[in-house]
Amino acid sequence: MSLSPYFRGLAAVTVATVALSTAGLMTRLVSIDAPTLLFLRGTIAGSFLFVCLFAVNRGRVGPDFARLGRAGLLICATSAVCAVLFIGALYTTSVAHVAIIFATCPFVAAGLGRLLLGEKPTRSALVASGVAMGGVLLMIGSGEEGSLFGDALAFAMTVMVAFWTVLLRRFPDKPALPCTVASCLLSALIALPFASPLVASTHDLLVVLGFGVLVFSVGFLLLTIGARDVPPVEAALIGALDAPLAPLWVLIFLGDRPSGSTVIGGTIVLVAVCLHILSAHRTATTSAAKS
């Protein structure tokens, strides 16, 4: 039995979230500043995806970008701003703080989805969002230091991500690969005046190259594709997986151990998201069987 577009979207967003949750780890593995990292990441990921686009479409590359139109360019610009705010937040507050604040995205997405699309979130999605928020509130009590400015950047990023998911849902016909290429390159262009790519060490370049090609390019593309078939609140809910995963990668690879309340709260978020995905799969399977 083939999977429904809805469940394929859930799977794509989930895999993308796991991949993109390693961004905090990347910022801890390099010694370059935020604009330089943003420039290198955007340039590497955007160039790699452009090569993929050219290999797949060849003579249709120009028309594919032309199909973006104003709505597509708005999607690209919003995604690029998200990247700028995200990297800025990771450099000015803790990985856990960024992840915790981002976990509130389902509530922002639910409001924007209802306001701009008239979509009413499902009861299970709202319940899961409430449970996830309980885990977030518990993690806030971990006592980990952050900064007001960094937390503000993380909240602004959260709002922009929610708006981006709504735009993808509103304009599902925009080509995913050109959107992702343009977004990556635009974020690099924004960072260029402040970046110093020539001072990056070989180690830093290899780290960004590995993450840019193997992780972020695939993650951005899957997220752009998957968010088209999933209501904004649910895409944002799955994105809440970043809350437990981002500190986990830092713990595994760098030994930066989070507090007990962070671990417990992150587990609550993880369980809420997993239960919702299982519930959505069961619903999709039942609907397919009846049709």
Rank of each mutant, 00 (worst) to 15 (best):
L205H: 01
P247V: 09
S259W: 12
V56I: 13
L205S: 01
L74C: 10
L189R: 04
A182D: 05
G210W: 06
P197L: 04
T27G: 13
L177P: 08
I44C: 07
A272F: 05
K174A: 10
S183K: 06
P193E: 06
A66F: 10
H97G: 12
L189E: 02
F194Y: 13
T224V: 12
P121G: 04
A284Y: 06
A128I: 03
L209G: 15
A83N: 12
G59Q: 15
R257N: 12
G239D: 08
L198P: 02
R41F: 01
G42W: 02
L254N: 00
F50Q: 03
G266I: 01
A83I: 14
A23E: 09
A71R: 15
P35M: 00
P244E: 04
L112V: 08
A45W: 07
S94T: 14
P178R: 00
A195Q: 01
G210T: 05
I264D: 08
L270S: 11
C274P: 10
I277N: 09
F171R: 11
A280Y: 12
T158D: 00
I44A: 09
A182I: 13
P247F: 12
A240R: 05
L168Y: 06
V108G: 05
P178K: 00
P35Y: 01
A191H: 01
G260P: 09
A128W: 04
T27L: 11
I140R: 07
F54T: 12
I225P: 06
L167V: 06
L68S: 10
S287M: 14
G219R: 04
L278G: 15
R41T: 02
L209Q: 11
R282G: 15
I101K: 05
P106M: 03
F163M: 08
V98L: 13
F211L: 06
A89W: 00
V61S: 02
R41W: 05
T104P: 04
T14Y: 13
A109W: 02
R67W: 03
L222I: 02
